[in-house]
Simulated assay, not measured.
Amino acid sequence: MQNHNSFRISTFEFSLTFVSLNLGSIILFLPRGLAKELETPDGWISLLINGVIMLLLITLYTRLQQNFPEKNLLEFMRTGWMGKWITPVFSIIFIVHNLIIIALVTRILVITTNNFLLENTPAEVIAAVFLLTVAYSVSKGVQGVFHINLMLFPIVLFVLVVLFLMTSADFDFHELTPILSEGFSPILKGALNTSHPFVGGIYFFFMLMTYLRKEDLRPLPINLVSLIIPLTYITIIVLCYGVLGFEINKFTTFPLMEVVKSIEILEGVLGRFDPVFLTVWIIALFTTTSLSTLITVLIINNEFFKSSKKKQTWLMPILIFIVFNITFNPNNLSEVEQYSRDLLVSLGFILTSIAIGYGYLTVCFKNKKSTTDS
């Protein structure tokens, strides 16, 4: 695995990679989930709230990271009060959180691929090929995974922009009204249930911000690029409601796919847009999964094998085996969504709260100690 003392990345590259982590699995069925949850077309307000919270968390964590530049969070936590005990517990929660993300993303990939692309291919084969590809990517180390993500992300973003432009003509603004018809209560509930990419997604910073130079640890440029995340989610919600109709979204498994199916590119030449979109969407899932797997490997090596000079060649096969078995625990998409709400949202809040809360306590502890010593 790449030594974090020898590789550096720019703020822009870091921010784009963070965006690529969070534009993945839920975009296909998010409009349905919010429509059923809120019973009003105000889902975009829930996402707007989450976007503001995400920017605040990025600012808080970036300012925290300024206290330990070119180190990862685990290294800093070990120096804090009871850090020797708290850090391993935090690391285990972190690993479990990431393994669940990888497994659920893989399950969504399998379900969608079976429905739209490879109907007769066994689900186990699709999952195995996908996870082996991810494992190969992660074997190239931090630099390899960053560069792969930076190469693939513009393709994903370009296809999303094409989708937004080609469907705008069929958009009906009246499907987004009335606004706030049920008040703020359902909006806040919807914000909570869809919070993981915005709150839980901050885990990307914990291990990978160490590859930023000290002078690049500035929240504003990261926030400006990260705005792509809430803007993309909001645009997808608004697009699906405006093109399909709000009520139809409640009963459509993959609303965004129905929007995509209505598009034809160069009629008679390239035909329908959905195979192109699905292929690019799989690329987005690959970037999410490869980054989550990389971070998991970094945590395990950093926390449990830091003193070992040997490369843990057995680690990746074991991780892939565990993920493969977790992947088929949810039997259908409804169970995947339930796992996401019940597990990922909670774990995301726990991780982010511990990281930022304990991190700032450690800074205060160190400052107080320095004052006392002087």
Rank of each mutant, 00 (worst) to 15 (best):
I222E: 11
R32H: 13
I155A: 07
Y241E: 12
I179D: 10
L256I: 04
L56N: 04
S20A: 10
L343P: 10
I295D: 00
S139A: 08
I95E: 02
E303S: 06
L188Y: 13
I27K: 11
G33R: 14
S137A: 14
T287D: 07
E75K: 08
P186M: 00
R341Q: 14
N114L: 11
G268K: 13
W81H: 11
L109W: 04
T167L: 08
L104V: 07
R63W: 06
I108F: 08
F206T: 09
V161K: 05
G24M: 07
S10E: 05
L298T: 00
R218P: 09
V260L: 07
F304N: 03
M316P: 11
T232N: 02
I265G: 01
N249R: 05
S91T: 09
N22S: 00
S370K: 15
F305T: 04
L176Y: 00
F198D: 01
S181N: 14
L163D: 02
L278D: 01
L227N: 08
L131K: 10
A284C: 08
L55P: 04
V105A: 04
E335M: 11
P330Y: 06
N149Y: 10
F286R: 07
G242D: 08
I300V: 00
L21Y: 06
F164L: 10
L131R: 01
Y233G: 00
K309W: 02
I320P: 08
V125H: 13
R63G: 00
T288K: 05
V280K: 12
T372N: 15
V52L: 15
K189T: 06
N5R: 15
K36W: 13
S334D: 11
F7R: 10
N67L: 11
R8G: 00
P330G: 02
S334Y: 13
E39Y: 11
A103T: 02
L38Y: 10
P88W: 05
L351Q: 11
Y360W: 15
L47K: 11
N223G: 09
K250A: 08
L294G: 01
N67Y: 15
S139D: 09
P31T: 02
T362F: 08
Q143C: 05
S290V: 09
T296C: 03
L47S: 01
W81A: 03
L165Y: 14
I26T: 13
M257D: 03
V142I: 06
H4I: 09
E337H: 14
I228F: 07
N115K: 15
V345P: 05
R32L: 10
P221A: 04
T287M: 00
F14L: 12
S137D: 12
G190A: 03
I58S: 01
L99K: 12
N329V: 13
V145W: 06
P88L: 03
F349K: 05
G348H: 06
V129Q: 14
L118P: 12
S168N: 14
A135Y: 13
G51A: 06
K369Q: 15
F251S: 14
I27N: 06
Q65R: 15
V323F: 08
L118I: 09
Q143R: 15
G190K: 11
I148K: 13
H147C: 12
N50D: 11
G200Q: 09
V260N: 01
H196N: 15
T235W: 04
V19Q: 04
L64Y: 12
I248T: 12
R107H: 09
G190D: 05
V145S: 01
V105C: 07
L347T: 05
E39I: 02
L74Q: 06
H174K: 15
L28Q: 08
H97P: 05
L244W: 14
I299E: 02
